[in-house]
Design a protein around this nucleic acid. Structure first.
Lengths: 223, 223
DNA sequence: GCATTTGTTATACGCTTGAATAACTGCAAG
DNA sequence: CTTGCAGTTATTCAAGCGTATAACAAATGC
C-alpha cells in the first residue's frame, strides 16, 4: 500500500481537471455516478482535494454546468461571414458534432433534471438560455436587414423562440436517436423548416461536402 | 413509538401508489431524491414493502418511466375527428397542459439522463419514441390523403421526424421557461412552423377560446 | 376456531456517501 | 539551512443508501 505520488498543479489546471472529470463521470454514469470519490479518481487525485478547490459538491456541479453550457454555445457564437452565412452556420453548428452527440445530451439532461430543483442551477441555466436566444435574435435581425426587410423586434423575438425550439428539438432527436437518421438528414430538415418559417431561403454553409449532403436530403420532401 | 397501522391494499392499488410516489419524489427532488425510504414515506408505507412489489429499485424506476411515457403520449393518441382535426389536436395537445409543464420536463429529463447509461431504460425509451413517431406518421399520411395529395411514405417519415423535432423543442421551451411566453404563443409558433413545413394550412382545434388565443398570437409574425 | 398464508412493519447489515480532520510533502522566504 | 505554509494524501465520521430478514397482523382455508 504505497502512497499516491504527490504532484502539485496550478489552481487553474486543477480546477479544470476536476471539472472535466466531473463531466466525464456524469456522462458515463449519470449524476448519481458523480461522487466525490469517482471524480477524484478520474482526475487522478484523492477525494479530499475536491473540497480544497470547491466549497461543496454542489459547487463543483454548478461550475461543471457552466462549463457545459459554454461548450454547447461557444461554437454558435463568434461566427463570421455575411448575416446569411452566420445564420446558416448557426443552424449547422448546433446540429452537428461536437454539439450534437449523445454525450452532450446525457450531460444536458442530467443538469436539466435538477434545474427545477436547485435554484443555483436554475440561475445558471436561465442566463445561458437568454444569452443563446439573444444571439439568435441578433442573427435574425441582421439577416433581415441584409435582405432589405424592415426591422421588427417583435417578429425577431418570435422567430428566435420558434427557431430555438426547432433547433432544440432536432438536436434532441439527433442526440437521442442519431443512428435512425441519415447523415445530414436532420440538418436538412432544420433548413427547410426554418426557411419555411422565416419565409426566406437560406444558403447552406460554405463546407461543400456538407452542403451537397443535406441539400440532397432536402430534396426528399421538397420535391 | 407506535406501530404504523396495518392496511392491506390490492396489488394494483399498491403498485400504482408506489409508482406515483416514485414520480412525485423524482419531480420534487430529482432521481437522487427518489430513495426507497422517501418513496415509501410518500406512499404511506414502510420501505420494505417496495421490495415486496418490485424486485429492486431499478425495476420500480423502469415501471415509473413506462407510466410517465404513457402519460405523456396517451393524450396524443385516441384523437378523433377528421384527419386535419386530429393533426391539429395532436399539435395542440402536446404543447399545453397537462403534457407541457415543468413537472413533466423534470421527470422526463431525469429519465433521459439515464437512458444512455441504463439499457433497460433505453429499451423503454426507444419503444415509446418509435410508437409516438409512428402515430404522427399515420396522422400525416391520413392528412395528405384527405387533402387529395398522393401517398408518399418517405415524405411522411421525414415530415414526422421534423414535426416531432419541432414539437419536442417547443415543448421543451414551454416547460423550461413557460413564463417567458404569452399564453398560446408557443402553440401559435408550432402551427405556423408546421404549416410552413408541410406546405398546407391547418385549422386550429375546435376549442374556440384556444383558437382565438393562438390565432391572435399567430398574427404577431404572420403580418 | 385454529393453522396457514400473505401483506406489511420493523429492525439490522454492509456499504457508500459528503464532509471533516489529521498527517504528510515539497516549494519558497528568510 | 530551516522554518513556515499551502497543496495533497490518508483516515475518520456520521448519515443515508439498498437490501435482507425477522416479527407481526389480518385475511383465508379447512
Amino acid at each position: 500500500m504505497s502512497r499516491r505520488d504527490f504532484h502539485r498543479a496550478t489552481e487553474a489546471e486543477r480546477r479544470h481537471d476536476l471539472i472535466e472529470a466531473t463531466l466525464d463521470c456524469i456522462a458515463e454514469a449519470g449524476l448519481q455516478g458523480a461522487t466525490v470519490r469517482q471524480i477524484a479518481d478520474k482526475a487522478g487525485v484523492t477525494a479530499g482535494l475536491i473540497r480544497h478547490y470547491f466549497a461543496s459538491k454542489e459547487v463543483i456541479l454548478q461550475e461543471a454546468y457552466k462549463v457545459l453550457i459554454a461548450r454547447l454555445t461557444e461554437k454558435a457564437k463568434n461566427l463570421d461571414g455575411t448575416p446569411e452565412e452566420r445564420l446558416s452556420s448557426f443552424i449547422f453548428v448546433n446540429l452537428t458534432e461536437p454539439v450534437a452527440n449523445s454525450r452532450s445530451l446525457s450531460l444536458w439532461a442530467a443538469f436539466i433534471s435538477r434545474v427545477s430543483v436547485d435554484p443555483a442551477l436554475a440561475a445558471i441555466h436561465r442566463e445561458g438560455y437568454l444569452s443563446f436566444r439573444q444571439e439568435l435574435e441578433q442573427l435574425l435581425a441582421d439577416f433581415f436587414v441584409a435582405r432589405g426587410v424592415a426591422a421588427d423586434p417583435v417578429r425577431d423575438r418570435t422567430l428566435a423562440i420558434a427557431m430555438n425550439g426547432i433547433l432544440d428539438g432536432l438536436w434532441l432527436e439527433g442526440c437521442l436517436a442519431g443512428e435512425l437518421f441519415g447523415e445530414g438528414e436532420l440538418v436538412a430538415i432544420a433548413f427547410s423548416s426554418i426557411e419555411a418559417l422565416i419565409g426566406h431561403p437560406i444558403k447552406a454553409p460554405t463546407s461543400t461536402d456538407m452542403d451537397r449532403e443535406y441539400r440532397d436530403a432536402l430534396r426528399i420532401h421538397h420535391r
